[in-house]
Each structure stands twice: as structure tokens, then as C-alpha cells.
Design a protein around this nucleic acid. Structure first.
Ligand code: SF4
Ligand code: SF4
Lengths: 146, 146
DNA sequence: TTTAATTAAGACAAATTTATCTTAATTTAA
DNA sequence: TTAAATTAAGATAAATTTGTCTTAATTAAA
């Protein structure tokens, strides 16, 4: 369903959001350590998120990645997934089957559509803010205990 | 979510089921043509399905792939997915995130769990029989018009 | 203005998935 | 028993995804 790139992108965005709440910028190194991901690969994904306007980057000393505080509540998981994996969840089958014609559905369509639509709805209604708050409250975690 | 292998495996199984209802065995060539998949790769997937006991194969003249008529209603999508992609839907995150500890969930857990559980339930409750009947009734199709 | 700190970009490499090809093993029927 | 028809298996190749490394571009501060 989701690529590794997407998984790292989601977690990275959450970590950046948490820090942006406190006015702190973070580096790819910090991010990769915190979400337990390969650093250089994570940096690539961050570049894509910047290009798509999901996060901001500031170069030079005291630079790093950040998200506008006022945007954190507005950014939905769907935007992150779209920035990294493209629009395949919207074009055709959200479950990885071939793109299809609703008027000529494949045999599993009716069954899969229910799941796909729920996934889509969830991605479009889950904000970075609520995920970040879950971390801050200690209800969830970005990586396992070492 | 699902690999190409899994997609081909599902469609192939449905096609075999349709033919087995009529007592006909089918070859990898016929199957690949009917589901619009690469033949040799499809043959590999069929081998895996045979090894896992989802379908039967008969070698030699007048051989081919088939499914016991009485089994068609009992085989669930989950068995096919398991035969090809393994048990990753059951171990850890069904949405492709890392395996995780329910007691130490990642930030998207509560949101994803709903979708994952629905997917799992659907796979475990959808039989080859109902999918095959959908094709036979003309309600669904195995490939697009050429 | 220079320097140090940082992200951006692109070339490269490794791993995995997808796909093909060749040969072996099996089975049925003539 | 032989020949033809078939699936099984393994080697190989291509494509994609994941991951790394090096260099360039940018920025802020001293
Ligand atoms: S499940 Fe529906 S959306 Fe997915 S490939 Fe089949 S017909 Fe298309
Ligand atoms: S969504 Fe839940 S099951 Fe999936 S990785 Fe996160 S904690 Fe694990």
C-alpha cells in the first residue's frame, strides 16, 4: 500500500510538526535518528515534501526543516502520500490493483471499494496536528525502544 | 498493499475457479491471456498457489490447473494473499508500515487500524465462489476491452 | 566579505520485485 | 514403450525501489 518512502515521509512530517510547534528547525540527521530511517534517503524524501509545499526548508546556519505553525492543523496525510507516491490512490485502485473502469469493474471491486474509500477518507481527514499531539501526550511513538 | 504477484494470483484463481465449475482445466497460457498478465511470471505464481494447496495442478496431456469444485466456496482471498505475499497482513501493520508493538503504537495506528481490520475482515470473508459468480453473471470482468 | 553551516541535486550502488528463458520432471495416450 | 503434452524448477535479466556518496548552491553570522 505505502512505500517505505511514504512511511518515512509521514513520520518525518510528524517529527517536524512537533518541533515546529516549539519554533525549532530540525536537520535530516536529527529526523532520521528520531524516526529510525536511512539518513540520505530520508533527505531525498524531505526534498520532495519541500517541492510539494508540504514542509519548508531553510538553508544555511541555523537552518533546517520546519512547517508553518498555522499550517500544521491543515496538512492532511493525503497530501504527504500524494507528494511521495503520487496520485495513485486517486487514479484507479487504491489497493494496488490496476487502474480500472468503474463501469467494467474487476471481480473484487465491490469488496475492495469499501476498504479503499475508508482509507481515502481517513487520509483526507487525519491532520498532522492530531498525530503530533498524540506523540506529545505519550500516546504514540515514532520508533521502538532501542 | 498488494504486489503484482498477488494481483495476478487473485485473478488467476478466479479464472481457474470459473473453469473448474465446468470441469475444465486451464493452462498458464490461457490464464495469462485471460487475465492479461505475463505468462512465465504467472506460471511461477501458480506454482506457489499449488504448493500452498490453494489450487491443484495436473501434469501431462490434458493436464492443467484446477480447483476442487467443493473447495471453491471455501477458499478465501486471504488464503491467496497469504500464499503469495506471506503473512505480513497478519504480522504487524497491514498497511505496509513497520511491524509494531500494539503497546507502543506509531502515531497513525488508531487511524490505520480501522482500515487494516476492515481489509483483513474482507479478505477473510470473500470467497472465490462469489467472485467467480460475479464474472459469470457479467457483473465484473477480468480484463479491459482490447 | 568570508566562512561555516546547511539543504539541493545528481550520480551511483544495492536490494527487491517483476519478468523471461531454458531445461527437467511427469503424465497421458497412442 | 515411446512420443507428445504438460507443469516444475532454476538460472538469468530487466525494472523499480531503496539507499549512499559526492559535489553544488544557498544562507546567516562573524
Ligand atoms: S478493485 Fe475496483 S478499483 Fe481496484 S482494480 Fe478492481 S475494479 Fe479497479
Ligand atoms: S499503524 Fe499500527 S499496525 Fe501499522 S505500524 Fe503503526 S502502530 Fe503498527
Amino acid at each position: 500500500m505505502f512505500s517505505k518512502a511514504c512511511e518515512y515521509g509521514i513520520k518525518a512530517s510528524i517529527f517536524i510538526a512537533i518541533n515546529s510547534f516549539e519554533g525549532k528547525r530540525v536537520s535530516p540527521k536529527e529526523i532520521a535518528e528520531e524516526i529510525d530511517s536511512p539518513q540520505a534517503f530520508t533527505a531525498k524524501i524531505l526534498q520532495a515534501l519541500v517541492r510539494h509545499g508540504v514542509i519548508n526548508s531553510v538553508k544555511g546556519a541555523y537552518g533546517g526543516f520546519e512547517i508553518d505553525k498555522k499550517d500544521i492543523a491543515l496538512i492532511k496525510l493525503s497530501q504527504i502520500v500524494n507528494a511521495i507516491d503520487g496520485d495513485k490512490i486517486y487514479n484507479g485502485c487504491g489497493l494496488g490493483l490496476h487502474t480500472c473502469d468503474e463501469n467494467r469493474p474487476c471481480p473484487v471491486h465491490d469488496k475492495f471499494k469499501v476498504v479503499r474509500d475508508e482509507l481515502k477518507h481517513m487520509l483526507e481527514h487525519t491532520s498532522l496536528e492530531e498525530l503530533a499531539l498524540n506523540i506529545k501526550s505519550g500516546a504514540s511513538f515514532l520508533k521502538t525502544i532501542t
